[in-house]
Lab assay of single mutants.
Amino acid sequence: MQRVNMIMAESPGLITICLLGYLLSAECTVFLDHENANKILNRPKRYNSGKLEEFVQGNLERECMEEKCSFEEAREVFENTERTTEFWKQYVDGDQCESNPCLNGGSCKDDINSYECWCPFGFEGKNCELDVTCNIKNGRCEQFCKNSADNKVVCSCTEGYRLAENQKSCEPAVPFPCGRVSVSQTSKLTRAETVFPDVDYVNSTEAETILDNITQSTQSFNDFTRVVGGEDAKPGQFPWQVVLNGKVDAFCGGSIVNEKWIVTAAHCVETGVKITVVAGEHNIEETEHTEQKRNVIRIIPHHNYNAAINKYNHDIALLELDEPLVLNSYVTPICIADKEYTNIFLKFGSGYVSGWGRVFHKGRSALVLQYLRVPLVDRATCLRSTKFTIYNNMFCAGFHEGGRDSCQGDSGGPHVTEVEGTSFLTGIISWGEECAMKGKYGIYTKVSRYVNWIKEKTKLT
């Protein structure tokens, strides 16, 4: 034993070699072989497995989906700052455009905790909710729209109204504003409101030439003092309507412009014939205590009207009353817009006519005020429907199939267009061939041609 100890002390290297040989010859039971080890760690190889990531292109799944990435790591994937920024906006807080917040056709661009709407022409605001041009839906104005110097929408209202708090709607500024039905039992019968379409306001006024200088022999019209197929109006439903009495009662109609003036057809009036105007009328054979009678003290036909040349060209006249009318729910003026808007309103496509005229061709006159909704007829169809001249200051309205029309005794009465609950004068009943005849239409004086003249002559002093 002493000898062994001496050998170990003198030859430590020998001992180490012996131990190493023993270990190498022993069977290893701690580690699995290569094949079995792979069965336990069965993990798919990654895209760049075996390579240094710093030297390969980034992978979106590896960089940002398996674990949260930084902007720089995302930049490695896209290799483009702009594309990385677009991805980053949604990656950080989701897609803010998912709810489609942009209105009126706006395009949404996502941002971090926010979004941006790219608005089409005519709109602005956070969600493109603000109209900035009158060309689109009248700028959301209830009545009139004008573009300011910086191309912003400025709404306005006709006389007797003021802008509401929203700067879009119009509200009454006087007790009985024009064009409004205020009798409670008839307010439910107000005709369907007309909503502004998209309009090209630059070209809204037709490029028409008034044929002022045409000389033409007097034409022989049949029954051209021209509501057939209409309905009984309720008291106060058309408070701007008046009836004219002269040699015979209810020979023509008219509309209240203001307390002192009536507008009617020029062919209705004769110099030297006494005319009485009755406002607030409903049943011409009954006294309903809503009527107001006034005498006409002055007749002003349009300066281009000449019955000797043509009885229905420039067929418009103004009547001055001896005493002002007292405005109330049964006696209310009709609204008159400017030339541009009167023309736009007419193009809405349908209007209402009213009167006490004959209820059928050569038949009896109506006792109760009649009204009828009539569609506008395109000019080409209008011209083809008659052998008589249709001037540019006239328009056609009615039904091709016949059966409904204005008729004798309705002449001078109103053709009105309702705009968001307020009625505007767009025409004056003038003439036609018979009444409600198939293929024939009622012919009306186009008020847009005469609004400046009306307003100039009827100013209240």
Rank of each mutant, 00 (worst) to 15 (best):
N135L: 10
L319Y: 01
R358P: 05
M8K: 08
C141S: 00
V377K: 09
V154A: 10
F55L: 11
S11M: 14
V377Y: 03
K168N: 08
L24V: 05
F78C: 15
S448V: 03
K247C: 05
E259N: 08
S187L: 06
N310H: 12
G412S: 04
I429S: 14
Q2T: 05
E67L: 08
P301I: 05
H282E: 03
V183N: 07
A337C: 02
A266G: 04
E171T: 08
Y22Q: 09
G50E: 11
I7A: 13
I316W: 01
S184M: 06
P301E: 07
A266K: 02
Y341F: 15
A26M: 04
S406W: 12
L163N: 02
G105P: 03
N151Y: 06
N245A: 09
C252R: 01
K457Q: 06
A149F: 10
R162D: 06
W453I: 01
F176N: 09
F348P: 02
N151G: 08
G105S: 12
S406Y: 11
L32V: 11
F424Y: 14
E124Y: 11
P375T: 12
E142F: 03
I112S: 15
A436I: 14
S448E: 14
K260C: 02
T287I: 11
I297G: 03
A250N: 10
R83T: 11
R373V: 06
S182D: 05
E281R: 08
I284W: 10
I300V: 12
K274D: 11
Q167N: 06
K109S: 07
V263E: 00
S255R: 00
F87W: 10
G122M: 09
T209Q: 08
S365I: 14
A308D: 14
Y341N: 15
T85G: 11
V326A: 11
S365H: 13
I256W: 00
A207N: 11
N245I: 09
N393V: 03
C178E: 01
P301G: 04
L189V: 07
G403Q: 07
T209W: 08
F71K: 06
E53M: 06
N328D: 09
F360C: 07
V451A: 14
K438R: 14
E193W: 12
D212S: 05
V263A: 03
I40T: 15
G160S: 04
P12E: 05
V242L: 02
C252G: 00
N452I: 05
V257S: 00
P375A: 15
L244R: 00
W431R: 03
L20D: 01
T225L: 05
E323D: 10
E323R: 04
S385D: 13
D95E: 15
N328I: 02
K137P: 13
N245T: 05
W431A: 05
S156K: 06
F399E: 15
G280T: 01
K339F: 09
E142K: 06
E288S: 10
R140I: 12
G179T: 00
V273Q: 05
R62P: 14
V154F: 11
G351Q: 04
L244M: 06
L319F: 03
N138I: 06
K457R: 13
D131L: 08
C268W: 00
G160L: 01
T290S: 08
A26H: 01
C28Y: 00
H34S: 08
I309N: 13
E285Q: 09
H34N: 10
T389I: 15
A308C: 10
G179S: 01
K152L: 11
V416R: 02
L318I: 04
T458P: 01
E420C: 11
N5P: 09
K440E: 14
F399Y: 08
H400F: 11
L41C: 10
S423F: 13
V273G: 07
Y371T: 13
K293L: 09
F31Q: 15
V242W: 01
E433Y: 08
Y161D: 01
V199E: 12
R43V: 13
K339P: 15
K311T: 08
E116N: 12
G427N: 01
I344P: 03
E61T: 15
S329N: 13
D110W: 15
I443S: 04
T461F: 11
N313V: 06
M394E: 02
I336E: 00
E66N: 11
P175G: 06
D338F: 02
F123A: 15
E54S: 09
S114M: 03
N38R: 08
V181H: 07
G106D: 03
G403C: 13
A149D: 08
E76T: 15
N48Q: 07
V278F: 05
G125P: 03
S423T: 09
Q241E: 04
G21Y: 12
G355Q: 15
G58T: 14
R379P: 15
T287M: 07
G439P: 07
C407P: 05
